[in-house]
Design a protein around this nucleic acid. Structure first.
Lengths: 213, 213
DNA sequence: GTCTATAAAGAGATAGAC
DNA sequence: GTCTATCTCTTTATAGAC
């Protein structure tokens, strides 16, 4: 296998991560392909082509195409959860936590844009059992987000006339759609976007008593 | 063709719209199927089955599966643009316009959830030429949104340190992701969600001089 | 670990009868 | 407008050699 990179889909792969080890390279290339074409429309032949091998050779490394999707989803959500837990270990003031969580969410998901986008929108490609597993991982992550929001509500820092659940949905709305338009070479970095969204959300749902004039 | 409805996918079709005319019923059922399974994974045989006809009979009504996707996208964006233009004809104060636009966007897109979601996430299934066409329609709509935001910035009602483009992206982030989790039988109506998101966004990006204490 | 060859199933779409 | 029958192509995955 040549160490030179083919053109096309693979250009969108973030250069810093796991480029050497063949198993991880497979996942990275699969994520880029799945995001570009969609999981169902992406073929194992295309994937093999990007890796410079024949379709049949792929099956020495994986058991099925679905295994790749599943692994991408689990990896992506594991990274998200770990990053969120680091935030909770470092920040303790509710609004600091929420700001840091927004930033971490945006930076981590966009640093991993191919697999994160695939995880978010291609769940339908998984078997019912695996889909349920991934949805559970996602619920675990979202529960962390919701608990930080509820904490800020308890401290009277965020409005409490809307449930923590719906504030969490609004928060993730604001952050998640970014995967559809963010470009690494765009005008704003993921850090800047994370800060901006944190700012908009916190100002947007601050408790009335907390609003600055 | 029986007038009784089969079970399954079709349950998610909004009951009020265009249920009689066979051409529109086809589009409605296709939208529900495409949203549930994804465009690429949905088969024409499944679609025919939902309509109570054979696969081959489908081709009396359409020329190709892709035609359906294309038509859904165009219809969905046409509805969005018309609704936005009605808002502009009725509201003139910048923040009233923005509020009404948020509400209209949410209500219209969720009233049409299957085809709107399909339009937003299944563009990859279109040929390059048609994809470009739909992207152009979407850009037209988004330009309306951006112009209303820019108008509010010019009136010093929204912060101007962030470009209208990025405020528009944040605004649509907040609104669009709702298609992934909204349920017609959920706790909040689309009207309530539209108002909530308008509130969050406008409070979140209000100009400093406009913030209430 | 990769190859050639191919199996087995399913896809979109068409032909032509009724 | 719908049917049965079928064409043609592509898909995921496997067998077995090297």
């Amino acid at each position: 296998m040549s160490s030179e990179r083919p053109v096309g889909v693979e250009q969108s792969i973030s250069a810093d991560r796991r480029a050497q080890d063949p198993g991880s390279r497979l996942l990275t290339v699969a994520a880029a392909l799945f995001r570009q074409k969609g999981y169902a429309a992406a073929t194992t032949r295309e994937l093999a082509g990007l890796l410079g091998i024949q379709n049949a050779s792929l099956y020495h490394h994986i058991r099925s195409k679905e295994d790749l999707l599943y692994q991408l989803c689990v990896d992506s959500l594991t990274r998200m959860r770990m990053t969120a837990e680091e935030v909770l270990a470092q920040e303790f003031e509710p609004l600091d936590r929420l700001r840091a969580l927004a930033r971490a969410h945006v930076v981590t998901s966009l640093g991993d844009q191919d697999s994160h986008a695939t995880m978010l929108i291609e769940l339908r490609g998984l078997s019912a059992a695996r889909r349920a597993e991934v949805i559970e991982l996602r619920a675990t992550y979202e529960a962390i987000v919701e608990s930080v929001i509820a904490e800020a509500q308890s401290a009277a820092l965020l409005r409490s006339d809307i449930s923590a659940k719906h504030l969490r949905l609004a928060f993730l709305n604001l952050l998640n759609w970014t995967i559809f338009w963010f470009r690494q070479d765009g005008e704003l970095t993921s850090e800047q976007l994370g800060d901006l969204f944190a700012d908009i959300f916190i100002s947007g749902v601050a408790a009335a008593s907390e609003r600055r004039s």
